[in-house]
Design a binder for these strands. Structure first.
Lengths: 249, 249
DNA sequence: AGGAGTCTGTTTCCCAGCGAACAGAAAAAG
DNA sequence: CTTTTTCTGTTCGCTGGGAAACAGACTCCT
């Protein structure tokens, strides 16, 4: 399985790409393209949702935390998805925090504006429903992975998922952030990353991880990556059988 | 927070209860009530979905497994929900296994029959979409819980969730099954249950656990139970503001 | 009643990874 | 260029709970 080639979706969002041309036209004035960095907040848990976001090259994550301050990612959203779906059905409060994990571009639209689009097109309702199934599968598999797999396995899975969603082979993130994603401590991540670098699979620089040998990383990752990836491929292919985004080279 | 009183939902399924009377009428011949026990299988992962199920007094669980045979619950479904939603949008293959965890009654309907109902009523589509958000929140919280909390905390959470969905205070399950639900080993569960019994919160018998002091169990459970419960209360109240199923006594 | 199968209580060994702590390196700020 | 801040590498003791194993108790079947 190769990294997403993305083909003609490069610099597009998959959900937005499904909108009929006239609808895109009418949304145009309400759409804003923005470059986001990990300092920017998307949603804070239990606060009102103002905008829905469609990542292009940025990668966002749903984060769940405990009252002790421990945190773990419960969903990742890249060019294939969006955040703010519940708002479309009147859940105006975000159940979890959403953060920017990898810097890049997003399109944002005021929630109430996109809601009108959602309500008008059963195709979009259908699409977002299906997107939710995919996200659900992803979350369920992460749940097993977080329970049973080692730091090394979970980290490999996460790096591959991030690699599928970023542009190029460089992931701009710190080890601290990566540790938070997989619900581990930084020292553990640091050691595992060191081993991967010694084996030549990645290159580590301050605030940056470069994927060098994706194939080998897939071999050492647990099955969870494959299960999640297949769910997304299925979602994408359902809509564009021949020209899909995630595709085996 | 007290156990679900269920009021007039007693012996009803919440989703089915939202259907318009004429629709219920026309579904009648296709509906079958069945008593299910933990030996009965609902869905096996990657196999075709024939029926959708609406629990009444039974409790079902989504189970995710690893290739090593480890297993953990990734969702629980009682009288408040249903299984087989993805089939309504053409996902004819179940992504995970669904098992009967607590014996009891369910209503089942052939998937293609209920699908017609689903397609006819945007109210039902809306309802099931919202149900999925709820399930998603439940899963996300379980994900943190599985990652960070102890066997004792996870077990308390699970017992409370099961207690909300069963009839009475007795849970008919073995410690082996309970261990599988929370992704732990049986001996660990056995010890923790022993402590709870010594403290007088539960009574243990072979193949049965009786909840004696629910209030105290809530105190020793982690916050995860509350978060999940609030998501469900919200879902239920959205539809029946005054007469809801889960309600504080 | 007796025997087979299933469920539960408990013990021993062992280790992945947490918690805490600190030094060095790179970047940013001044 | 110096100071401060932010990252990264590494060390070490500690513990929850996994892995394995077994005896006793209950249930069900013949």
């Amino acid at each position: 399985m190769s990294k997403a080639r993305r083909l003609n979706y490069l610099n597009k969002n998959f959900i937005l790409a499904q909108l009929p041309p006239d609808e895109i036209e009418s949304l145009q004035p309400a759409m804003q393209m923005a470059r986001m960095t990990p300092e920017d907040l998307i949603f804070r848990a239990n606060e009102r949702v103002e905008y829905v976001y469609f990542p292009i090259t940025a990668m966002l994550s749903w984060i769940a935390t405990t009252s002790e301050g421990e945190r773990v990612e419960v969903g990742v959203v890249g060019w294939e998805g969006m955040v703010g779906v519940p708002e479309m059905l009147g859940y105006s409060v975000a159940p979890f925090t959403v953060e920017v994990e990898l810097p890049g571009d997003v399109v944002r639209i005021r929630a109430e504006v996109f809601r009108r689009t959602f309500e008008r097109h059963s195709l979009i309702q259908n699409l977002l429903f299906r997107y939710y199934f995919t996200a659900h599968t992803q979350l369920a598999q992460s749940c097993v992975c977080n329970r049973f797999h080692t730091v090394e396995e979970r980290m490999n899975r996460w790096l591959l998922m991030a690699h599928d969603r970023c542009d190029g082979d460089e992931l701009a993130l710190t080890q601290e952030i990566l540790a938070g994603m997989i619900g581990a401590r930084r020292p553990a991540v640091s050691i595992v990353l060191g081993n991967l670098q010694k084996a030549g699979l990645i290159r580590i620089e301050r605030g940056r991880i470069t994927i060098l040998q994706r194939e080998k990383m897939e071999e050492s990752a647990c099955e969870c990556y494959r299960v999640i990836r297949e769910a997304f491929d299925h979602f994408i292919e359902d809509h564009h059988p021949s020209v899909n985004g995630f595709h085996t080279a």
